[in-house]
């Protein structure tokens, strides 16, 4: 295919496929915790990380990973204290992240094209230097999920039961939130800060509609996310439209087609 003659498209495809594996993998756990909105909240925190990065001329992905991880742990700490409901915590942190971002962006003399590439994604401008940290972070996340699969699934489905079985449910909560933060940081260049939540949730929801076991739902979710990245990227190239938006729209189309075929 013509598009794969361009090295920037090869890099875009690699970055997209990395995110397509990790985003639904973590998204599945968030869905069963009924905490999928945390991805959107953390993406607004990520915007503040990007603004700090641009303001201080440091690598935004590094700052974003550290900042979103810290806030993710703080959100989990407040949620498990049971003094404030989980969704209320998210409703506070989401505008909080946005407010900090707006102030920082104004200090950095407003919007520029670099900031837009994080807001809406700019997968075709991903550099080789960005691919490697993405791959390493993704592999670490994957290894953690494989190693902690049983305690993660038990504490996500049934927190009280897991606690009584001797599982450190608090630790599992922190691990999952940190993995979510890492995923948000990885995905922001691919689909953009404003669309990350969609890539973490839509393929997982679609996978769960047709899966015949929880393990199977991971495979379907990853396959749907990969298909969305591939079709979205090719479509964006030929139609000259933004790749992030195209990927999410394809993801939604797969969900729609799956729902229609199941209802027949």
């Amino acid at each position: 295919m013509e598009i794969f003659q361009y090295s920037f498209m090869i890099r875009a495809l690699i970055a997209g496929l990395i995110v397509a594996v990790i985003a639904p993998l973590i998204g599945n756990f968030l869905l069963i915790r009924r905490f999928s909105m945390v991805a959107d909240t953390l993406s607004h925190i990520a915007l503040a990380g990007v603004a700090i990065g641009l303001l201080t001329h440091t690598q935004p992905i590094l700052i974003t990973t550290i900042l979103t991880s810290m806030v993710a742990i703080l959100i989990e700490k407040i949620r498990t204290s049971q003094k404030i409901a989980g969704e209320t915590v998210l409703a506070m942190f989401l505008p909080g992240g946005l407010a900090v971002s707006i102030i920082l962006i104004s200090l950095a003399n407003g919007f520029n094209s670099n900031l837009f590439s994080y807001l809406f994604g700019s997968i075709t401008t991903v550099s080789s230097a960005e691919i490697w940290p993405m791959l390493i972070l993704a592999l670490i996340s994957l290894a953690i999920v494989i190693l902690l699969y049983r305690p993660l699934i038990f504490s996500s489905f049934d927190e009280e039961g897991a606690k009584l079985s001797g599982i450190n449910t608090k630790l599992m909560g922190y691990v999952l939130m940190t993995l979510t933060a890492i995923t948000v940081s990885l995905a922001m260049r691919v689909v953009g800060i404003l669309l990350i939540g969609a890539l973490m949730v839509i393929p997982s929801v679609t996978g769960m509609k047709i899966a015949k076991s929880f393990k199977q739902s991971f495979f379907y979710a990853i396959a749907f996310a990969m298909a969305a990245v591939l079709i979205g990227l090719v479509g964006a190239f030929y139609l000259n439209i933004p790749a992030g938006g195209a990927i999410v729209l394809v993801s939604l189309a797969i969900f729609g087609l799956t729902s229609v075929s199941l209802s027949k």
Partner: peptide, 19 residues
Amino acid sequence: AGFASSGFPITVEEVISMA
């Protein structure tokens, strides 16, 4: 158990092996 009626695709074997 909250997830019993949640609609999530989890098999009997998977529920038991969680422990």
